[in-house]
Design a protein around this nucleic acid. Structure first.
Length: 289
DNA sequence: TGCAGTGTTGCTTC
DNA sequence: CGAAGCAACACTGC
């Protein structure tokens, strides 16, 4: 789930908690988590590396080490936990926590652990095991990120840039908002929320959108994402911040996963779900035209 | 019980 | 070229 607001929440937490620490060792129960280099090499390269900074580009978290960069893409269910090492058992991934709430049983889904020099760990929890970690030199990192579209919350993302990015696009606006080379960082939750706030139906084709409609979408991309960052993300499923807390956008989201509920605009319509480009889209057929 | 559905992305196929 | 399907996994909910 981690989209821009969730990855940014993780980034801020890690920046506060682990910058300046040195990695003492690494451990895994799912070596495929490390895509490059192979884990046998990876685990030998990291001990002794100091964490210099924590950055984010699109939905990627970037941990800057001495001259190298750890890039983590969380895909569907990945997130980072910082805790005292004593909270992890030696065989922590074989131990089920007592909580009945699946997503709170963090230990069970930890697949990669960075032990730190202050007795804590920085751990990747990932129920579905789709997350991937890569270790890069600067040039490789830049190359890896080179195809991404603009960061929607940065000053450079103007209405003019937005329209340039949409030039030549022919598909449904919902589908285009999810394309990371058009705008980076938006996923299924926030695409639905942005279109609801903009009163635009998700299946509307980009070439048919009028200037004022494009402006509404542009404004709401920034408003919705900024609000979600402020509220530390959405936890309709497993997302947790580095301390294990849920994101508060979950409570204020208006359409995502609210199929059948009354429209929050009190228009009398019901939130409807439809598939667009293979993805669930939630919207109010009454308000969104 | 079984199976469709789930936040992402990239690869394959047509 | 684009669009669609699917795979990578594990769990939820109908």
């Amino acid at each position: 789930m981690p989209e821009l607001p969730e990855v940014e929440t993780i980034r801020r937490d890690l920046e506060a908690e682990v910058v300046g620490r040195t990695i003492t060792s690494v451990s895994t129960d799912w070596p495929k988590t490390v895509a490059d280099p192979p884990f046998e090499l990876f685990e030998g390269l990291l001990p002794g590396k100091k964490i210099k900074a924590i950055k984010r580009r699109a939905k990627n978290l970037i941990i800057e080490l001495d001259g190298q960069y750890l890039l983590i893409h969380f895909k569907m269910t990945g997130h980072m936990i910082v805790a005292d090492a004593s909270k992890l058992h030696k065989d922590h991934w074989d131990e089920a926590d007592s909580s009945s709430n699946l997503a709170d049983r963090v230990n069970q889904f930890i697949h990669l652990v960075f032990y730190l020099d202050d007795g804590r760990v920085m751990a990747l929890s990932d129920l579905r095991k789709f997350a991937r970690v890569r270790l890069f030199a600067k040039e490789q990192l830049d190359e890896h990120l080179s195809g991404l579209g603009p960061e929607p919350l940065e000053a450079g993302f103007t209405f003019k840039v937005f329209k340039e990015q949409l030039a030549g696009k022919k598909g449904a606006i919902k589908k285009i908002l999810l394309e990371q080379d058009v705008i980076s960082g938006i996923g299924n939750i926030y695409a639905d929320e942005i279109l609801f706030e903009s009163r635009i139906a998700p299946q509307r084709l980009v070439p048919d959108l009028k200037e004022n409609e494009l402006k509404a979408i542009y404004d709401n991309i920034r408003k919705v994402l900024a609000k979600a960052v402020k509220l530390r993300g959405t936890s309709t499923s497993d997302f947790r911040d580095a301390s294990g807390a849920k994101g508060e956008f979950t409570e204020v989201r208006k359409v995502y996963r609210r199929t059948g509920e009354p429209c929050p605009n009190n228009c009398g319509g019901l939130i409807t779900r439809m598939k667009i480009a293979g993805r669930s889209s939630h919207y109010c057929p009454n308000c969104q035209k």
